[in-house]
Simulated assay, not measured.
Amino acid sequence: MYIPPAFREDELSALHETIRAARLCNFVTATDEGPVATPLPLFLDPTEGPYGTLYGHLARANPQWKLAAIGETMALFMGPDAYITPSWYATKHETGKVVPTWNYLAVHAYGPAEFFEDDERLLDVVTRLTRLHEEPHTDPWAVGDAPEDFIRAQLRGIVGLRMPITRLEGKRKMSQNRNAADRAGVASGLAASDRTSDRTAATLIPVTA
């Protein structure tokens, strides 16, 4: 990922927060048949390895897990993003020398992909993944709510994924390269948007000098 110095994010806690908040990633492998990508919900275990380890599962029918990966695999996580109109810049009214751009958060995780079929490991992964996403609900569903034989049958339709992260790249492009007046204009414009993602992005604009 191309990352100009002004937009580089190296803080591990911030990178992990973007991964957790993204919920869904694109899991990408390079193979002899070309690049292959699958949208996957993964969860991060920050205690495994220097950068953490990602876990999830794929459908057994998905050919990606059977295709030998060339080099590292990638998990691409996107945070809030927003179109930035030049009309929000104070500089537009001063010089007119402005163009549109896009603000966004992105984290690319790299590492080897380890696939597994062991029932107990699969059950652990789906239980942890389910608990993570059910926790905010007032009446959370648990894997144990379904009949055990039904769950065991469902497990036969998936394969597990473990991806120890060997390196992380983070990009936080939130108008840091603009002056204070332009950043304030962007924050104000995004905050007034009807789009939830725009309003979230507004909170990430550094409005102080």
Rank of each mutant, 00 (worst) to 15 (best):
W65E: 08
R162T: 12
V98S: 02
E17V: 00
A90F: 07
W88V: 13
T85V: 10
R178Q: 13
G157P: 12
P50N: 05
F43Y: 15
P206Y: 08
P164C: 08
A191L: 05
G157W: 13
I165R: 01
K171I: 14
D149W: 07
P140F: 01
P136V: 02
F150A: 07
P206H: 09
N179R: 11
W88K: 07
L190Q: 11
D194P: 02
A59C: 06
Y89S: 11
A82Y: 11
I158V: 15
I165G: 01
R23Y: 01
E9P: 06
V207H: 05
G34S: 09
L54S: 08
P140N: 03
L76S: 13
T53G: 08
A14P: 00
L40D: 05
Y83I: 10
C25T: 13
G96F: 08
A192R: 15
P206N: 10
G185N: 11
L58E: 08
T203V: 00
A109W: 05
L58T: 11
L129A: 14
L40H: 07
E134N: 08
W102H: 08
F43P: 06
G185T: 13
T29E: 01
G157S: 11
G79K: 01
A180E: 15
G79L: 02
P147F: 13
L129E: 09
A180S: 04
D32A: 15
L190D: 12
E169V: 05
R60D: 06
E94F: 00
S175M: 12
V159K: 08
